[in-house]
Design a protein around this nucleic acid. Structure first.
Lengths: 84, 84
DNA sequence: ACAATTAATACGCGATCGCGTATGTTGACA
DNA sequence: TGTCAACATACGCGATCGCGTATTAATTGT
């Protein structure tokens, strides 16, 4: 249960928000640790797609989280083409 | 072993590059599937920090990978401040 | 060694980043 | 219901995105 799967930016943002709250941090407090504005943390958690990788990695770091990449587990091979 | 940990953009890029090669795709072929230029895939794999989240998620999708967020496993609590 | 494929880099473009700063908006609790 | 903390959104800025297009490495195969 402590492993959370993120297949898109929104899920990722949601995970980060949960983690931050669990850590009892405000967006501003978190941002301060990693030198990001509260507004930037907000965008990240909102799942905006154009947020930069560095922003994500910094947040993960501050929250003591790590990223794991693995083969897609369940169903969901899905037709990629359909998404575009 | 199939689970790869990425603690920074470079590691993430390296993982993606390995996965793409294992899938026997060129940067261009991968890019075509997800409507990204070969040059953009190159930047992603090179671990450039300012690549956008959407670019990452698209690549993961095309490679049949998923992202997992979990508490940092081993050592490496590290002093966040020192990184900035 | 050479040719061919693949990957890295470059230019100009419109769009959007994260920045500082500041202001709305929301939600919780007195 | 009013106040205050937390979050969302806005403006202008310099920087950088990903885009098309193209060129220059670098890698691979024979």
């Amino acid at each position: 249960m402590t492993d959370q799967i993120a297949r898109n930016e929104k899920q990722l943002g949601a995970i980060l928000r949960r983690a931050r709250r669990q850590a009892d941090l405000t967006q501003e407090a978190l941002g301060k640790q990693i030198h990001l504005r509260q507004a930037t943390v907000s965008r990240l958690e909102a799942g905006e797609p154009a947020v930069q990788l560095s922003t994500l990695m910094a947040a993960l770091y501050a929250l003591d989280l790590e990223l794991v990449v693995r083969p897609r587990s369940k169903g969901s091979a899905a037709e990629i083409e359909d998404l575009f």
